[in-house]
């Protein structure tokens, strides 16, 4: 046992026991569950039709009837925030799913075959990496018009290089280990080695990257909507609502922007916390 291992202490407690001692993790998990429920059921939970004009007074402060107040067209902010959860969460989920699947496939192929495959993949990844995600999204909007689809596709591509680099490095390290050579000498098939040994070994790193990626994708998509290039008014997307509420900040009705903004921050915060903790746990479990 090395000194470093000694300093890190015993093997970690099982996940459930660890969670019980970690109120922050519990809180973050609860927030995530709540966000997922809202994203699935959002419109059903809303007290008002999110698009109904003049459901109350214009730009009214929070009250019992409108806990989050109303916006400049008298729409109920709470209802709009609840209805906005679905598009605001679905976008980043898509980005992470597509970029992870593509990225892992490219990375594993690149590490497995090496040589020319690796060279071409690395060059491709370098080129994509050189174009910042937000720029690629804006470029996509310029080509295909405003809306969420173009930025989501663009970000799926833009987020791929990071996945490829991380997974490729991990896969190369793993493939270099003798247990993989032992499996090959046993005559175990390539696909079996990939799916039963290589991918499970890489899973903690992939999951960690996916959670981090989700947070950044959520922020990037909201930024696109905030810039007026993504979801279009009167959609109740959180980014759109923040931009829409901006003028009211100076007239003393910050709720219209603040509530959707708070939800974005809260979601990203919760995802980051859960991601970081599960990563630590998964890494410790495999050590």
């Amino acid at each position: 046992m090395s000194i470093g291992q000694l300093a890190r202490g015993r093997t970690p407690a099982p996940a459930r026991r660890a969670a019980a001692h970690d109120p922050l993790l519990v809180a973050a998990a609860l927030v995530l569950v709540a966000i997922i429920v809202i994203a699935l059921l959002g419109p059903l939970l809303a007290p008002y039709d999110p698009d109904q004009l003049y459901a109350g007074a214009v730009s009214a402060p929070p009250s019992l009837a409108h806990p989050f107040g109303t916006d400049d067209l008298g729409r109920d902010v709470l209802s709009r925030v609840l209805a906005g959860a679905r598009p605001s969460v679905a976008g980043p989920v898509l980005v992470v799913a597509v970029s992870t699947v593509l990225g892992v496939a490219v990375a594993v192929a690149s590490a497995w075959f090496g040589g020319a495959v690796d060279g071409i993949a690395s060059r491709l990844v370098d080129v994509i990496f050189a174009i910042p995600g937000l720029v690629l999204a804006v470029l996509a909007v310029a080509m295909f018009g405003k809306g969420l689809l173009a930025p989501v596709v663009a970000l799926s591509i833009a987020y791929m290089p990071i996945v490829v680099r991380l997974v490729r490095a991990g896969a190369r390290a793993e493939l270099g280990r003798p247990y993989i050579a032992a499996l090959r000498i046993q005559g175990v098939g390539s696909l079996a080695i990939c799916f039963r040994h290589l991918l499970p070994a890489l899973l903690p790193a992939i999951l960690a990257q996916a959670t981090v990626g989700f947070g950044y994708a959520m922020l990037d998509i909201a930024a696109i909507s905030f810039l007026g290039l993504g979801a279009q008014p009167p959609a109740s997307d959180w980014g759109v609502m923040i931009a829409g509420g901006q003028p009211a900040l100076l007239t003393g009705a910050p709720e219209q922007s603040m509530f959707p903004a708070a939800l974005i921050v809260l979601t990203v915060l919760a995802v980051n916390i859960v991601g970081a903790r599960t990563t630590t746990w998964a890494e410790a479990k495999d050590r």
């Binding site: 280990r177 247990y179 005559g187 098939g189 040994h197």
Partner: peptide
């Protein structure tokens, strides 16, 4: 091919140096 490797595997096998890396930790 995997079948050819399996055929050879029944004749030659190998044990590696590092016992910490020659088994899948999972």
């Amino acid at each position: 091919s995997a079948p050819a490797r399996r055929a050879r595997a029944r004749v030659v096998q190998m044990v590696f140096q590092d016992p910490y890396q020659s088994l899948d930790p999972r």
